[in-house]
Amino acid sequence: TPAEQLLSKCPWKEYKSDSGKPYYYNSQTKESRWAKPKELEDLEGYQNTIV
């Protein structure tokens, strides 16, 4: 779907730490963070409005 294509192009991906806590990693900037990036939230919100 178009929304899945947008998400696949987003540099932010969700991973799980050893303790199972989700964290987010940007493959372009090599940045990681615990809080979900706004860019990823926006894309997921867009995906939910299409489905």
Results as ranks from 00 to 15, higher is better:
E41A: 07
S32G: 05
P11S: 09
K36E: 02
I50A: 14
I50W: 08
Y25C: 02
K13A: 13
K16P: 05
N26T: 01
K16Y: 11
T1Y: 02
E39F: 00
L40T: 07
T29A: 01
K38Y: 05
A35G: 07
Y15P: 00
A3H: 15
S17H: 08
L6F: 10
T29W: 00
D42M: 10
Y46V: 14
S19V: 06
W12M: 03
K16N: 14
S27F: 05
Q5C: 05
P37I: 01
K9A: 15
E41V: 10
S27W: 02
D42Q: 15
E41L: 08
I50C: 14
T49H: 08
K21L: 13
V51T: 05
E39N: 04
L7Y: 03
S27P: 00
S8P: 13
K21E: 08
E14P: 02
A35V: 14
Y46D: 13
L40P: 09
E31G: 00
L43S: 13
S27G: 04
K38S: 09
T1W: 00
C10G: 14
P37G: 03
E31W: 00
E41K: 04
S32M: 14
I50P: 12
Y46A: 14
S32Y: 12
W12K: 08
W34M: 14
Y24L: 01
E14Y: 02
S19H: 04
K38H: 00
P11D: 01
K9E: 09
P37Q: 08
Y25V: 09
P2C: 06
L6Y: 04
S19C: 08
Q47D: 06
E4T: 08
E4N: 15
Y25N: 01
E41Y: 10
S32F: 13
I50Q: 12
D42G: 06
T1F: 15
G45R: 13
N48A: 08
G20H: 06
S8I: 02
D42H: 07
K38Q: 09
Q28H: 08
D18R: 07
E14Q: 06
K13I: 07
N26E: 00
P2G: 15
W12R: 03
P37C: 01
A35C: 11
I50E: 15
G45P: 12
C10T: 14
Y25M: 11
Q47A: 08
Y24Q: 02
Q5G: 10
E44P: 08
Y24R: 01
E39V: 05
Q28A: 09
K9D: 13
P11L: 07
L43H: 13
K36I: 01
Y24N: 02
A3T: 13
K9Y: 13
E31R: 01
C10P: 01
D42W: 03
K30D: 03
